[in-house]
C-alpha cells in the first residue's frame, strides 16, 4: 500500500483517537481507573495507556473484577503484565463478596457468576471513589453498544440510560458529573475485533496463551464449547471431549465459549477473524443469548 506524506493508516488514526481520550480523562477527572482483565481488549488499552503518558507511567491504577472462575493462564498473564508496567492493581473479588455474604452465588448446573460481576464492579468503583472507569468495550461487539457514547454517563446506582445519553460531538468530551456518579470511558469504541488483532500484531504485544489453539477438555451446551473444570456440573446427555480450540474472548469460564481453531500465531488468528462469519459475542458468550436485549439490560444495571 502506498504511504503518502501526511497520511495515517487506520490503526494510527484509531491509536491517536484512543490516546487523545485517555489524556483527556487523565486531565479532567480526579480518580480514573482502567479495567484490566488480561483479555485482548484490555491488553490493547494498557498498551495505549503506556503510550499516552510515556515516558511517565499512566497516572491511574488498574482494576480487575475477578469472578474466581478465571482461566489460570490469564491470571498469570495479568500479574506478569501488571508487574511490568509497575501500576497498582485493585482486585474486586466476586468470591470475597460471596464469602462476606454481600451477594449470593448462583447454584445448579447452569450457575454463572456473570451477573454477580456487576454488583462487585459497582462496589469496587464506589469504595475506591473512582470517577472515571476505562473499559475496553467496542461498538462493533453488540447492537446496544453500537449506540453507546465514548463517555458513558452513570448515575449514583451505576445505571446507564440509553434514551438519555449526552450528545457527543467532534472530539469534545463532556466530563461533567457529580460526586458519587461516574463516567465509563470507552477509548476503543471505534475499533473492530480485526483492528484489535491487527494492532496486537503490529505492536507485537504478548497475549495469554488461551487465545491460541490448544487441546482442552470441553463440553457442548447451547451450541457452544465450554471448558470443563471442577466448578462444572454436566447436564443429562452432556459429555466431555478433547478438542483443539482457542478463545476469541476471555471471560468467566462458566459462560465463555471456545471455538474450534488451529490458529497458533497472531497472523493465523487475523486470517481466521477476517474470514469468520459469526460475531465474537455471538460465537462465544452465553450471557448474550438470554434475550434480544440481554446486553442492554445488563448495561442498564451497570455492567461493563
Amino acid at each position: 500500500m502506498r504511504a503518502m506524506r501526511y497520511e495515517l493508516s487506520h490503526l494510527d488514526m484509531l491509536e491517536a483517537e484512543s490516546i487523545h481520550i485517555m489524556r483527556e480523562v487523565a486531565a479532567e477527572f480526579e480518580r480514573p481507573v482502567l479495567l484490566f482483565s488480561g483479555g485482548k481488549d484490555s491488553i490493547v488499552m494498557l498498551r495505549l495507556a503506556e503510550k499516552a503518558f510515556w515516558p511517565a507511567k499512566p497516572p491511574f491504577p488498574l482494576m480487575h473484577v475477578d469472578t474466581g472462575h478465571n482461566f489460570a493462564e490469564v491470571i498469570d498473564y495479568r500479574d506478569r503484565r501488571v508487574a511490568e508496567v509497575g501500576l497498582r492493581l485493585v482486585v474486586a473479588s466476586v468470591q470475597q463478596a460471596i464469602d462476606e455474604g454481600k451477594i449470593d452465588d448462583e447454584t445448579g448446573p447452569r450457575a454463572s457468576r456473570n451477573q454477580l460481576q456487576t454488583a462487585v464492579l459497582l462496589e469496587g468503583i464506589e469504595q475506591n471513589q473512582f470517577d472515571a472507569v476505562f473499559g475496553g468495550a467496542r461498538r462493533d461487539e453488540e447492537k446496544a453498544r453500537a449506540k453507546e457514547r465514548v463517555y458513558s454517563f452513570r448515575d449514583e446506582f451505576g445505571q446507564w440510560d440509553p434514551k438519555n445519553q449526552r450528545p457527543e460531538l467532534w472530539s469534545l468530551y463532556n466530563s461533567r458529573h457529580k460526586r458519587g456518579q461516574h463516567i465509563r470511558i470507552f477509548p476503543l469504541s471505534n475499533w473492530t475485533e480485526l483492528d484489535v488483532w491487527q494492532y496486537i500484531d503490529r505492536e507485537e504485544i504478548e497475549i495469554p496463551s488461551i487465545y491460541f489453539a490448544h487441546k482442552r477438555k470441553v463440553y457442548r451446551r447451547d451450541g457452544m464449547l465450554l471448558a470443563f473444570g471442577p466448578q462444572v456440573t454436566l447436564l443429562d446427555g452432556e459429555e466431555t471431549v478433547v478438542e483443539t480450540v482457542r478463545y476469541r474472548t476471555v471471560g468467566d469460564m462458566s459462560c465463555t465459549g471456545a471455538v474450534l481453531s488451529g490458529a497458533r500465531t497472531v497472523t493465523e488468528i487475523i486470517d481466521e477473524v477476517a474470514s469468520t462469519r459469526i460475531t465474537e459475542r455471538g460465537a462465544t458468550r452465553a450471557d448474550d443469548k438470554v434475550s434480544e436485549a440481554a446486553m442492554e439490560d445488563r448495561k442498564r444495571e451497570g455492567y461493563f
Binding site: E142, K143, A144, R145, A146, K147, P162, K163, E292, A293, E296, D297
Partner: peptide, 10 residues
C-alpha cells in the same frame, strides 16, 4: 433491525 439495537427502538 440490524442497527436498531435498543429495546425501545425494536
Amino acid at each position: 433491525l440490524l442497527t436498531d439495537g435498543l429495546r425501545a427502538e425494536r
